[in-house]
Nucleic acid binder design. Structure first.
Length: 420
DNA sequence: ACTCCACAGGAAAATTGGGGTA
DNA sequence: TACCCCAATTTTCCTGTGGAGT
């Protein structure tokens, strides 16, 4: 039992005591256990670091380097280690290189990527976020890179997103920029979790993409423990946590394709939870409960960031499911969607678009669909919610614009009902 | 064997909206 | 102000399709 001090004034307990004495006291900043934290050490990643360093080392001697493709699932340290390696190179020869990082999930058009690269160079405030022609930005950027006389090291995180969209044009333009047009020759570090990324490339892109591959294999539970332990030791005193809690975080992370981020987040949330509850020690129970809140938070965040039409489509799927289990088809969802739109005063989109939104929701893992042929009665998708209907509904209704849908079940007759 | 439903999903056209230039 | 360029989104148009009904 850790120093639980109780000050007694006469025979009374002061109600403020529990805020004065915290049962778990933090030794270090909790942000050490967050995704943003950049550690100094990377256990079990020496091999990957060595390959990347060796590949980039040519730049130190004035040669151009091969491009690097970094493969690995989420939470295997791809981004952190790439940042670390480029950071170290910058420390060494910062006067000769410009390092630029672009996340292609956020910036996936040729235009927005070029602008982001340009921003790494001084005097780029005059470039507007849109409006210029692609050629103009391109030329401006070529001038900037040439003018700087530095080698550009461009990290493209989630580079696979560039192939899915615009048919790979973005990547082609960037390769062209990095290759012949700049003269000095830059290096691209592409990060992806899609192991077949290179195979999917357009031949004209492939031929330009000389590369070195670095694989980030998933961490196993023991390795995750090695990653977690030093961080936990920086944040907590030994007497404030069960070793088993670390083990469980590591085990859960390992089960999720060796995801260190998950393990670390889990530990942080467990600590936050324990502190809030004025617990004495972090134990496995905190971890289990932290896992549940995490899962629900992910869902909430996903729903929150959905476009409004997508939310309405999702709502239509849920309501269809409630009324007729197993029978929600594209047509039913689509017509209920239109009704719901009218209810909230939004112009509905065409059913073609709704169909795409349904596919998107399936990609997010919120719904399942199976294409079924009903012979004479056509061909359609059966749509089912993957679970947690009530949570989803609650999160959708958090959108103020959709408030009129709160009582949808008992206020209005929808076309769907009339058909039955 | 043939028809035909109710869509799936690709391709292209149209619209929208940010920003520029004269 | 009118008009142009560009990217993203949405609509329009289209072809394809598995299998119950005939």
């Amino acid at each position: 039992m850790v120093g639980k001090i109780r000050r007694v004034y006469g025979d009374k307990v002061n109600p403020f005591d529990k805020y004065e004495v915290q049962n778990i006291s933090l030794k270090g900043d909790l942000s050490i256990l967050s995704a943003i934290h950049q550690p100094e050490e990377f256990p079990h990643r020496d091999e990957q670091i060595n390959i990347m360093v060796a590949s980039l080392s040519g730049i130190m001697r004035g040669f151009s380097s091969n491009n690097i493709l970094v493969y690995g699932k989420t939470g295997t340290g791809k981004t952190s280690i790439t940042r670390y390696v480029t950071g170290m190179l910058k420390e060494k020869i910062g006067d000769r290189i410009t390092a630029c990082y672009v996340n292609c999930q956020t910036y996936d058009s040729p235009y927005s990527i070029l602008i982001n690269i340009a921003k790494s160079f001084p005097g780029s405030d005059n470039i507007p976020p849109s409006g210029w022609t692609l050629d103009r930005i391109y030329d401006e950027l070529v001038n900037k890179i040439k003018g700087s006389k530095k080698t550009l090291i461009l990290t493209l995180d989630e580079i696979d997103k560039l192939v899915e969209k615009n048919g790979g044009d973005s990547l082609y333009i960037i390769l062209k920029l990095m290759g012949e047009d700049v003269g000095i020759g830059g290096t691209i570090i592409g990060i992806t979790n899609d192991s077949s990324f290179y195979e999917k490339l357009d031949p004209r892109v492939k031929s330009r993409m000389s590369r070195e591959s670095v694989m980030f294999t998933p961490y196993n539970a023991d390795q995750l423990k090695d990653i977690l332990r030093p961080r936990v030791e920086k944040v907590l005193y030994k007497e404030n946590y069960d070793e088993a809690a670390i083990g469980l975080c590591a085990a859960i992370g390992a089960r999720e394709h060796g995801d260190a981020r998950k393990a670390i987040d889990l530990m942080r949330i467990s600590i936050e939870m324990a502190v809030r509850e004025s617990a004495i020690k972090i134990n496995v129970d905190h971890v289990y409960r932290a896992r549940d809140t995490m899962e629900i938070d992910v869902i909430r965040e996903t729903v929150k960031t959905l476009p409004i039409h997508s939310k309405i489509v999702l709502m239509a799927v849920i309501v269809c499911g409630e009324r007729h289990p197993n029978s929600a088809t594209t047509g039913e969802v689509s017509s209920l969607y239109s009704d719901l739109c009218r209810e909230v005063g939004i112009q509905p989109l065409t059913s073609r678009r709704v169909s795409d939104y349904i596919s998107d929701l399936e990609d997010f893992g919120m719904i399942n669909t199976t294409v079924k042929s009903l012979g004479r009665y056509g061909r359609t998708r059966y749509i089912r919610i993957t679970g947690r209907e009530n949570d989803l509904k609650r999160f959708i209704l958090e959108d103020q614009e959709l408030e009129p849908l709160k009582n949808i079940k008992n206020t209005k007759q929808f076309r769907l009902d009339e058909n039955i």
